[in-house]
Design a protein around this nucleic acid. Structure first.
Length: 231
DNA sequence: AACATGGGCAACCGCTTTACG
DNA sequence: TCGTAAAGCGGTTGCCCATGT
């Protein structure tokens, strides 16, 4: 005979409107936080995590629903290029959008778009430096990571510095710059625009903020460099 | 009409980080 | 300093619906 106490499993699956109402009323009365208590005291048979997620992603005030604007899409693309799958950071730049929404939007809409862009850019780059897939005769192994690139960006590499990486006599790309143009980042998530192969000066400000810099000067520069996309 | 397939999205899982005693 | 609970986060799963065959 089983002597184990059967622990009641929290309810799962899609939220019903009445559950939303319960949660909304409870949070509006008692405030956010202590989600385990919310699930108990509100009468919801949901886990605390589930309640928190539902509130954060759907019930919280000022949540923006519906399709992304061109500006929002563009910002997601740029930021993802810089910082990869840091969805909460990206969402933080989009008022009313949640990390889950940004993540889903990326996975369903933007990833495909950008994959095409990357393929084109890599093909173009390989052509420029004489690499082809079948004959890697120059033994130049491309590193998998681009740490130096990321550091440069984090330190706010200037446009001038960036330009200096290009051989002005031939117009061809020096090795490092070339990496910056086509680099597949550590998380394999970034991409390259067809018409925008290099990280811009402006983009470096975005990354600065995302790195959580405490430096006030940098913060003020960021404010100048990048504004949130307002509805 | 019935079934298969794929896209979109909400929700869950599990790991990491943070807060607190 | 350590242990624990709560919260945060990104990856993954599974359901629903539209479209194609």
């Amino acid at each position: 005979m089983e002597n184990k106490q059967v622990k009641k499993q929290p309810k799962r699956g899609l939220w019903k409107p009445e559950e939303d109402l319960l949660l909304k009323n409870y949070v509006e009365t008692h405030g956010e936080g202590n989600w385990a208590a919310v699930s108990e005291k509100s009468g919801l048979m949901r886990g605390g995590k589930s309640c928190r997620l539902r509130w954060k992603n759907y019930l919280r005030p000022n949540i923006k629903r519906g399709g992304m604007s061109k500006e929002e899409e563009d910002l997601i693309i740029r930021m993802h290029k810089l910082i990869g799958n840091r969805w909460s950071l990206i969402a933080g730049r989009l008022p009313g959008r949640t990390d889950n929404e940004v993540k889903n939007y990326w996975n369903t809409h933007l990833k495909k778009k950008c994959r095409l862009g990357k393929r084109k850019a890599i093909e173009l780059s390989c052509h420029q430096i004489g690499i082809d897939n079948n004959n890697n005769n120059n033994n130049k192994k491309l590193p998998q990571l681009c740490d130096s690139q990321q550091k440069d960006i984090a330190q706010g590499i200037s446009e001038e510095e960036s330009n200096n990486l290009t051989d002005t006599t031939t117009g061809s790309l020096n090795y490092d710059t070339e990496l910056c143009g086509v680099m597949i980042p550590p998380n394999n998530g970034a991409f390259v625009f067809d018409d925008e192969p290099f990280i811009t000066y402006l983009d470096s400000f975005v990354l600065f903020e995302c790195m959580g810099s405490e430096d006030t000067y940098s913060q003020s520069q960021m404010g100048m460099g990048m504004q949130s996309i307002m509805p």
